[in-house]
Computed example of a mutant assay.
Amino acid sequence: MPSPLSPIDIQIKRLPHGEGLPLPAYATAHAAGMDVVSAEELVLEPRARHAVATGFALAIPEGYEVQVRPRSGLALKHGISLPNTPGTIDADYRGELKIILINLGDQPFAIARGDRVAQLVVAPVQLASFTEVDSLDDTARGTGGFGSTGV
């Protein structure tokens, strides 16, 4: 059995409105995402969006990003998601972590301070560069677009 990966250290700054809130944390031993909670109370109306304050700012190490992802239970039960999922927090951003939520359901959704609103997944970043060419190599799929490989 492979040994567990060593965690990277991410510095986190608690903002005044984050006092008393838990730090982002893994709910289980094998969870990939850390739960993050709301630092504010609000009602998210159907089809509305809101950048939910978390009360924290991060210093992500160079070479990493933090991805913000929806919580599956909120999505299934209430239609609460992220319109830009997964969202990316870059290593050079130092402002407050906010979670852009959208209510895709048909009922208002109440969010209380301390409610879990999203998951954070730490991921390495692979930089790339582009080389402009006149043609690309051929593949079995070729230029087949959306839905071209299945029903």
Rank of each mutant, 00 (worst) to 15 (best):
D138P: 12
I89S: 11
Q126H: 15
P24W: 01
L76R: 05
S6H: 07
R141H: 04
E19K: 14
I8N: 04
L5F: 08
T143W: 14
D134A: 13
T28P: 14
P4A: 14
P22S: 12
L58T: 01
A31G: 03
E96C: 07
G144E: 08
G63L: 08
T139Y: 00
V52I: 12
L104D: 00
G33E: 07
N84T: 11
D137K: 14
A140S: 12
R47Y: 14
R71M: 02
A39S: 01
A51P: 04
P46V: 06
T88V: 15
R113M: 08
D115K: 06
A123R: 15
V122G: 05
A57Y: 06
E45H: 10
N103Y: 09
H17A: 00
G147R: 04
L15M: 03
S72V: 04
P16G: 05
G63C: 10
A27M: 14
I89L: 15
M34H: 01
E62V: 04
H78N: 11
N103F: 10
R116Y: 05
F130G: 12
Y26P: 05
L136H: 07
A57M: 04
S148H: 10
D92A: 07
G150N: 08
L42T: 14
D134P: 00
L97H: 11
L101G: 10
S129L: 07
G105Q: 05
F109C: 01
A25Y: 10
P16V: 03
P70F: 05
I111F: 09
G145A: 07
T85P: 02
G150F: 09
K77C: 05
V37R: 13
E41G: 11
P70M: 03
L74Y: 01
R116N: 08
F109G: 00
